[in-house]
Structures are given as C-alpha cells and as structure tokens.
C-alpha cells in the first residue's frame, strides 16, 4: 500500500518577535512625550460648576490657568477666596496685570482659562477680569464640566 505522506510546509510557524521591542518603544516614546507630569499643586479649593453649552480647547499649549477659590489652610479649613496663578497665591490683585502681560509676550495667542470654585463670589472674578483687560489677554475660558 502506498502511503501518502503529508507534505509539511517548509515555513517556520513562529512569528518573528525581534521587532517587538521597537514597536513597544515607539508606543513608549509617544506616551512619554504626551504625558504632562507637572501638575500644579492647588492651594485653593476648586469645585468646578457644570454647563451645557461648552467647547473644548484643542490647543493646550496656549492655555494658561488662573485658579480662584477659598484658600486651603492647615487642618482642612478653608479661608477667604484667593487667586492662584502657577504655584503661588497672588495676594495683590493689581499684580495680575503684569503677570499676565509677561505670559502674553511669551505666547501671543494666549487663552486664559479661569478655573473658579462654584461658590466663590462674582466680585472677585470681575476684579480679575478687569486686570486681564488691562493686560490685553482678551481670550478667556470659564472652565466648567459637562452637565450630565
């Protein structure tokens, strides 16, 4: 009786994995580049309010933040409403003008994102807005969450 021997394919059945580290490294670099590690330590309490008709800011590098809310004190207490820019609390509202003007010189298309606590008073916001007008940073954004 004649045997029919199954012909085995001559190719290897393994997938070459030598390029895998390259792929993984590529992904790694992508995430390393997109990661923003430096987050500001908030010195004010911030509960954002919600709104419906909001838009996304796509150009994140243009954005500079101003935080407003009750100051965090020791032992979990909250003080008066304060303004925080970058890492420090700005005591003198009149100093915002120069601070923001310097930022505007660095980034002419600056967008100022105002992150304001939902319970802080409107009066402080107008004071800050007046300073922004003086500084010439007219594009602002009231940071809110999406209403569900």
């Amino acid at each position: 009786m004649a045997h029919f021997k199954k012909k085995q394919a001559g190719t290897k059945q393994e997938i070459p994995t030598s390029a895998m580290p390259d792929v993984v490294f590529m992904l790694l670099f992508f995430f390393m580049v997109t990661t923003v590690l430096r987050e500001v330590t908030l010195k004010v309490k911030l509960d954002l309010t919600t709104a419906n008709n909001i838009e996304k800011i796509e150009e994140k590098r243009l954005v500079s933040y101003i935080y407003m809310g009750p100051e965090r004190l020791e032992n979990n207490q909250f003080g008066e409403d304060k303004v925080q820019i970058d890492d420090s609390i700005v005591e003198d509202i009149g100093a915002i003008r120069n601070l923001m003007y310097d930022k505007l010189l660095e980034e002419p298309k600056l967008i100022v994102s105002l992150r304001v606590d939902e319970n802080s008073e409107f009066g402080l916001l107008t004071d800050v807005q007046k300073e922004l007008q003086q500084a010439g940073t007219f594009r602002i954004n009231y940071s809110t969450k999406r209403e569900d």
Partner: peptide, 27 residues
C-alpha cells in the same frame, strides 16, 4: 519596555479642558 509603557499609560491624563469661551472687550 512594556513595564515603562504601562507606567506612562497609567500616569498619562489626556484631559481636555472644557468650558465656556469668551472674548473680553478692550479696556
């Protein structure tokens, strides 16, 4: 590489800032 990748995957926050855009009038 995977270990590093997972670390960055976890720490990355691709958060988009949303809000109401306005343009202030000049003073």
């Amino acid at each position: 590489a995977f270990l590093l990748l997972i670390f960055f995957l976890v720490t990355t926050t691709i958060n988009v800032d949303t809000g109401i855009g306005m343009v202030l009038p000049p003073p």
